[in-house]
């Protein structure tokens, strides 16, 4: 938890640095945070569920 919060603040400070250097807006870190969160949440699916690919079963002629 401490590590993650440190990482987020690190990113915010970095984006403020970018903002002052290139004259951009300092909210770039929010975009990246959002994207990271999207991927984290999305990958939770693969923790909860297991994908099994089924082959199309051929009908047995008989």
């Amino acid at each position: 938890m401490i590590l993650v919060s440190f990482f987020l603040v690190f990113m915010q400070q970095g984006s403020i640095q970018i903002a002052t250097q290139f004259g951009l807006n300092e909210n770039a870190s929010n975009i990246i945070t959002g994207i990271i969160l999207f991927f984290l949440i999305g990958s939770e699916f693969f923790i909860n569920y297991k994908l099994e690919f089924r082959k199309q079963a051929k009908e047995v002629q008989g």
């Binding site: 909210n27 870190s29 945070t33 959002g34 969160l37 999207f38």
Partner: peptide, 17 residues
């Protein structure tokens, strides 16, 4: 909430830049 964070960042970043 993640979408809110993302959207606000998206808006403010592009709006300011």
């Amino acid at each position: 909430l993640a979408l809110t964070t993302f959207g606000m960042g998206f808006g403010n970043f592009f709006g300011g830049s």
